[in-house]
Simulated assay, not measured.
Amino acid sequence: MLWVDKYRPHTLDKVMVHVEEAQQLKQLVSQGDCPHLLFYGPSGAGKKTLIMALLREMYGSGAEKIKVENKPWKVEAGSRKLEVELTTISSNYHVELNPSDAGFQDRYVVQEIIKEMAKSRPLDVSGNKSFKVLVLNEVDRLSKEAQHSLRRTMEKYSSACRLVLCCNSASKVIEAVRSRCLNIRISAPSKEEIMKVLQHVAKKEGLQLSSSFAARIALASNRNLRRAILSLEACKVQQYPFTEDQPVQTTDWEQYIVEIASDIVNEQSPKRLFLVRGKLYELLVNCIPPELILKRLLLELMKKLDSELKHEVCHWAAFYEHRMQLGQKAIFHLEAFVAKFMSIYKRFLINTFG
């Protein structure tokens, strides 16, 4: 088992970061009821950990006895019948799913499947908790139609079901949904908090971890706790005992983006654009989020630019990131940004060196 799962806190009392939020949730549970909840914050901050600890607090160890199902659902879309395949993780008390996996059919998932799940009571009634919990991930990626359908479901089935929504950005969730939830912001952990968790994991594994090396891992993780723990485990596999000059392991996809940035800066031509497009496709098919690809690519390109170009490049990155949120095919907007960058950079080289 990976350390990130092995040392995940199972109760709200054992949470080492976001202690205040954990106490707030514990207080909610002690009152005997729970409103709809919206957890939002950056990836790797600990949203899912808090949600699972909350479920255990509410229902005991039974919430951890889960089964994973990948089953097709038949939904009616006007005069047509669509078959949507979704992966659900469920216990006797809760169901977890990602409705945005259905793509443009997400509103039918919300209208039919989630409504069907929300109708039913939990199989086991634990104390006075007579409601089922429905955990929906990545609600910020749902279409506006799906979010409006979600609002109606929240109102109609609130007696039998509580929704726990999880997303990276609350600004992409419509006001009608946000106003019906208790909003809980999970901020990225600080460097000191990450170091504390790394020292805890190292102690449990019987490892000697110096403060300076823990600080380097925390810094390289970019305040992503999950990534920091994975990096620590990767460093342990690479070399132990740790040395002060030991490099912190980076992921393959990040190295790949460094290569893409070098390709773009070294040559600006249709042929090179076609090559870069293929590499971007490879990242997308390996499930790297397009927003993350664009952000990381921008950071790598900025390292290679003169200061006079940085403002213009940032402007166009923001422009294409916005277009990507409105559109469906991420590759079009990533390629458009690369083409725009090539145009700007080539013009700069011509003006500078003739």
Rank of each mutant, 00 (worst) to 15 (best):
K340E: 10
V338A: 02
V110A: 01
S30Y: 02
S221K: 05
H200C: 09
Y59R: 00
N92K: 15
R162N: 07
E193T: 07
P42C: 00
G354D: 08
Q255Y: 10
L207P: 01
G78V: 13
F131Q: 05
D124F: 11
R178H: 05
E138I: 08
N224P: 09
I260P: 06
V75R: 00
Y320I: 02
A176R: 05
L182H: 10
L150N: 02
L12S: 01
Y40I: 02
V285W: 11
G278C: 12
V338N: 00
D140K: 05
E259H: 09
S126L: 11
S169W: 11
R162M: 07
M117G: 06
M58W: 00
V201W: 01
E116R: 13
L97S: 07
L54M: 04
E312Q: 12
I229F: 01
L273T: 08
H18C: 01
E308H: 14
A63N: 01
L297A: 04
L165W: 03
L54R: 03
E57D: 06
D263V: 08
L301A: 01
Y7P: 06
T250D: 04
W3A: 02
S169G: 10
K271Y: 11
W73V: 07
S120R: 13
N351Y: 09
K65P: 03
K47F: 07
K191D: 09
L292P: 04
R223G: 07
E112T: 11
I331H: 05
S158G: 09
G60K: 00
A234T: 08
E112R: 10
Y59E: 02
I344L: 15
F242Q: 00
D306K: 15
A53E: 05
T251Q: 12
L305V: 11
A218P: 05
L292W: 06
D306Q: 14
G278K: 15
C314A: 14
Q24E: 11
I114W: 00
K81W: 13
R227V: 13
T49K: 00
G44M: 03
F319D: 04
L280E: 03
S187A: 13
H18K: 02
M117V: 10
N351D: 12
A336V: 14
A215P: 06
T153L: 13
P42S: 06
M58N: 00
A318P: 09
A22H: 01
S79A: 15
M58E: 03
L275G: 07
E69I: 07
A215V: 06
R178P: 10
A102V: 14
P290V: 00
I217Y: 00
M58S: 01
V265I: 10
V197W: 01
R323S: 12
E335S: 10
K271L: 13
E57K: 07
V17L: 04
S61V: 09
T49Y: 02
G44T: 04
E83A: 09
V29I: 11
G60F: 06
A215Y: 09
A160I: 07
N351V: 07
R216P: 12
E76D: 14
L38C: 04
E57V: 03
V19I: 11
H311K: 13
V265T: 12
S169V: 12
E233A: 08
I217L: 08
H200K: 13
V338H: 03
K129L: 11
V313M: 04
I331R: 00
R141L: 14
R216F: 10
A261H: 03
I264P: 01
L163P: 01
V139W: 02
D252K: 10
V4I: 15
